[in-house]
Nucleic acid binder design. Structure first.
Length: 209
DNA sequence: TGCCAGGCCCTCTTTAGGGCCTT
C-alpha cells in the first residue's frame, strides 16, 4: 500500500446529523482538500443520504435540507469514493476528534481502514494564537484574515478554510518562531505540550540566526 | 424514570468541575 508523501495531506470536514455517532448520528456531507507542497491541488465535496430525516436545527445550521439529501447517494457510496480520495495521506481537521469519530464510524460501516494520522488545527491554534478571541474556525479565519467566500458550516468551505489555517500556522512557525521547515509530526508533538511550554519546545527547532 | 458526546484544558486541580469546540 503506498505511503503518504511527507509534504501531502488531506484537510477534511464533516457535516452531520448531530454530535455523536454513538448516539446514531450520521454524516450528511463530506468536504476535503488535498494539499501538496503548500498548495490546494484537489477538492472533494459530496452530500450523502443518512437514511432518515435530519432535524430542523441541522437544516438551519448547515443550510442542507431534507430535500437536498433525498436526492443524494447513500453514505456507503460516498464514503467509498472518499476512501479513494484520502488514500493513506495524513489528515487534518478543526477539532479533529469530532471528525475522526465520524470518519471511523462511517468507514467501519463499509469495512474500510485508513493508515493516515490525524492532526488537529484547533489544538495547534490554541498554542500558537493564544491571543485570539476564541479558537472557533470562523474566528480564526477573521483573526488571521484567511481566504473565505463567507460560507460557513458547509463541508468544503470549512475544509478549505481549515486548510488555509493550517498553512498559515506553518508559515507563522517559520516567520515567528524561526523554524526552517515545520513538519506534520512536529505539529502533532506541539499539541502534546502545554501552552506554557510552547516557546521552549519550539526553540529547540528554531534555526539560529 | 431520567438521562443522553467526547476530549482538551484551565483552575479556586489531581479523591473535580466546568468552559470550549465540533454538528
Amino acid at each position: 500500500m503506498p505511503q503518504s508523501a511527507a509534504n501531502t495531506l488531506v484537510v477534511l470536514d464533516f457535516e452531520t446529523t448531530g454530535l455523536s455517532p454513538n448516539q446514531g448520528d450520521r454524516a450528511i456531507e463530506i468536504g476535503a482538500v488535498l494539499i501538496e507542497d503548500g498548495v490546494i491541488t484537489q477538492r472533494f465535496s459530496e452530500l450523502m443520504n443518512p437514511g432518515f430525516k435530519i432535524s430542523r436545527f441541522i437544516e438551519d445550521y448547515t443550510g442542507i435540507s431534507n430535500q437536498m439529501l433525498s436526492d443524494a447517494p447513500p453514505c456507503d457510496e460516498v464514503m467509498a469514493r472518499f476512501a479513494r480520495f484520502i488514500a493513506n495521506h495524513n489528515l487534518v481537521a478543526h477539532n479533529a476528534a469530532f471528525d475522526q469519530r465520524f470518519l471511523d464510524a462511517e468507514f467501519a460501516k463499509i469495512r474500510h481502514r485508513y493508515l493516515g494520522q490525524f492532526g488537529c488545527s484547533l489544538l495547534v491554534a490554541r498554542r500558537l494564537y493564544q491571543a485570539a478571541p476564541n479558537h472557533q474556525l470562523g474566528t480564526l479565519v477573521r483573526y488571521k484574515q484567511l481566504p473565505t467566500d463567507g460560507t460557513f458550516h458547509r463541508a468544503l468551505a470549512d475544509a478549505e478554510m481549515t486548510g488555509h489555517l493550517w498553512l498559515a500556522m506553518l508559515a507563522d512557525l517559520k516567520h515567528d518562531f524561526g523554524l526552517c521547515s515545520p513538519t506534520f509530526e512536529l505539529l502533532q508533538k506541539l499539541t502534546k505540550k502545554s501552552k506554557a511550554d510552547v516557546p521552549r519546545f519550539l526553540s529547540q527547532y528554531a534555526v539560529k540566526a
